[in-house]
Deep mutational scan, measured.
Amino acid sequence: IGSLMYASIFGNVSAIIQRLYSGTARYHTQMLRVREFIRFHQIPNPLRQRLEEYFQHAWSYTNGIDMNAVLKGFPECLQADICLHLNRSLLQHCKPFRGATKGCLRALAMKFKTTHAPPGDTLVHAGDLLTALYFISRGSIEILRGDVVVAILGKNDIFGEPLNLYARPGKSNGDVRALTYCDLHKIHRDDLLEVLDMYPEFSDHFWSSLEITFNLRDTNMIPGSPGSTELEGGFSRQRKRKLSFRRRTDKDTEQPGEVSALGPGRAGAGPSSRGRPGGPWGESPSSGPSSPESSEDEGPGRSSSPLRLVPFSSPRPPGEPPGGEPLMEDCEKSSDTCNPLSGAFSGVSNIFSFWGDSRGRQYQELPRCPAPTPSLLNIPLSSPGRRPRGDVESRLDALQRQLNRLETRLSADMATVLQLLQRQMTLVPPAYSAVTTPGPGPTSTSPLLPVSPLPTLTLDSLSQVSQFMACEELPPGAPELPQEGPTRRLSLPGQLGALTSQPLHRHGSDPG
């Protein structure tokens, strides 16, 4: 009997000691992992102490058991019943959930998450997105703005933001810190809205009876308010094209079509300037034949640059190039080494500058006005007194259609001029006259002087055409309008007829 009692007592005591040691061994194993994590990542002392304290409290609170892992091991129907039991206190005593059906309560219970916070733990920081609604079931918390405590909340209090009033989550206007050990039930806004969409009859009752104890939403960050730039940057990543407008005076608003859609830094370009900076079609017209890549860069430059609305530039004389043409100036200075066709295309550029300027006046029909002061630039669209967005969009579309028509007509005119030049060069190729044979009589004449090349004649003739079109064909006081194609086609051969009437002889060394 004594040996039996000794064996039973010894066996029970050893089993008890073994169970104690097993729990202690698990605790030390998990604690060792936490300390190894702290050492590996070199976490500083204040945060390291918070980690160790939280682990110790969580171990004593749950005995080292992962409740979520245990809950996920059950089937979904059983999980709903378990969640309904775990959140029964909240669902029974909170006013917004009263009167809900059994199915609605089960769906809500599945969406709730339980959070346990030790003292000093910050649940929400200032500036964080308010993605959830919090219900306090135990403990107390404090809300701070800077170093000032603005509120202390306790059991059955609710904090967050009214989700039904805002389409997008706002930002917190303060820090939420736990004063004691707290148990909180939180539900994400997407989950709550999903359940309320499934039960629309409960939705009206819920929003009407929901009383948020403390609204954390920062009202200064609401979209459309003066301080909402940061919020707009976070939620409006896919922005449309940006529009900046110059201020319109009362006198300017009476004149229709007073602005032109141009790229940034293009205030001095012609009315047909689009795409790359520098001139019509993204580059100076005089350098068009020598740089074919300008047409390839036109599309990307047009689509990537934001639109700006600026006044037209001052008018340019008909014979003056659009500006920024070092290529043609070098050719004029060193005409001995340049291609003979460069002079002809220089005359073509003069005609283009004249036609572009006159067509700009035809479509816009307003006098040039000086540029406004820099303080009046970049007025935002949302400022008071601005035109409605639809009106601005319609004006932009009208300007775009005008620019497209202008570009089409300029292309047709350019093709006409090039065809005339090619026809003239085919009839009378460039050549130098040879020395004529002296006559049989004693009164022999001296050799004839060489005839100037055709490109120079073409430049003079085209300059005469531009001056003739600019000065004589337009009646005084009438708006400057571009001439039609047949009129220009008839004027060019008439001007060139006198020049080509002389018999030109080919030089023996000319390969053409």
Rank of each mutant, 00 (worst) to 15 (best):
N215V: 03
A398K: 12
K186Y: 08
S346G: 06
S334H: 12
N156F: 12
S305M: 12
F354K: 13
A151F: 01
G324F: 14
R248V: 10
Q502C: 09
Q422K: 05
I136C: 07
L210Q: 03
A478M: 15
H185A: 08
G497Q: 13
N164P: 06
M198T: 11
F214A: 05
T249L: 12
S236A: 10
S228K: 08
Q467E: 04
G146E: 11
L474F: 13
G160H: 01
Y166M: 06
V451T: 15
M221F: 08
D357H: 14
P311C: 14
P442D: 08
Q495K: 14
M198H: 12
P455M: 09
G174H: 12
A412V: 08
R409M: 09
H507T: 12
T131Y: 13
F159T: 01
E325F: 10
S466L: 06
G497C: 05
R145P: 01
A167F: 09
P429S: 15
R145T: 07
S313Y: 11
E230G: 09
L366I: 14
S209E: 13
G139V: 02
H507K: 14
S244V: 12
L165M: 10
G270D: 13
G127Q: 03
G263M: 10
D190E: 12
E320A: 07
C338L: 09
S509G: 08
G160Y: 02
E194N: 04
S287I: 01
N215C: 09
K171P: 05
S463T: 13
P256A: 13
I136Q: 01
P447Y: 12
L231M: 07
S382N: 01
P285Q: 11
P306N: 15
L459M: 11
E201I: 01
F214W: 08
L459T: 12
P317E: 13
L406S: 04
E161N: 01
E473P: 13
A132L: 03
S291A: 05
L454S: 09
P226I: 10
I187P: 01
V428D: 05
G257V: 08
L309T: 15
I379H: 13
D197L: 09
L210H: 03
P226G: 09
L130D: 03
D128R: 03
Y134H: 14
G282I: 08
L193P: 03
E194D: 06
L403A: 05
G347A: 08
R368H: 12
R177A: 03
Q467V: 06
K242N: 07
E254W: 10
N378Q: 01
L243P: 15
S172Q: 01
G257K: 10
P374C: 12
I212A: 02
C338F: 05
Y166A: 07
K155F: 03
S140Q: 12
Q464D: 08
Q255T: 08
Q419E: 08
P388Y: 14
V435F: 09
I222Y: 06
Q422C: 04
V259A: 14
P388A: 08
D147A: 04
P321M: 06
G127F: 01
S335M: 12
L165Q: 09
S383G: 09
C369V: 09
R405F: 03
L165K: 14
Q467Y: 06
P318E: 13
G360Y: 08
I379D: 06
E298C: 03
R247F: 08
P321N: 09
K155L: 03
G127L: 03
L492A: 12
T229N: 11
L376C: 15
F206K: 01
E232Y: 13
D204W: 07
T131D: 13
L133I: 06
E407Q: 08
L457N: 09
P442M: 13
L129C: 08
P450D: 11
S444D: 14
V176E: 02
G154H: 08
L474I: 13
S394N: 15
G233N: 07
N350H: 06
G127S: 03
M414W: 05
P311A: 12
E254F: 10
P511S: 05
Q238M: 14
N378G: 14
G324S: 06
R368P: 08
G227C: 07
G360V: 08
E472G: 12
M425H: 14
V149A: 08
T436L: 09
P455D: 04
P306A: 15
P317D: 14
R368Q: 08
G139W: 03
S334M: 09
P429T: 08
P271K: 03
P289M: 05
P482S: 07
Y134T: 07
P326A: 11
G282H: 15
L376H: 07
T219W: 08
G512Q: 13
T445G: 06
S290F: 13
C338I: 11
L341A: 13
L377F: 10
P256R: 12
Q483N: 13
D190T: 10
F214T: 03
D460Y: 05
Y166W: 13
G270L: 11
E230A: 11
S260I: 08
L327N: 05
R241N: 07
G154D: 06
R138P: 03
E407Y: 03
D128T: 03
K251E: 10
V451E: 10
P455L: 06
S305D: 15
L309R: 08
P511A: 06
L243D: 09
S291Y: 04
F235H: 13
S358H: 03
E332W: 06
S509N: 04
A261Y: 12
F159K: 01
E365R: 12
Q424A: 05
H185Y: 04
G224P: 12
A498N: 09
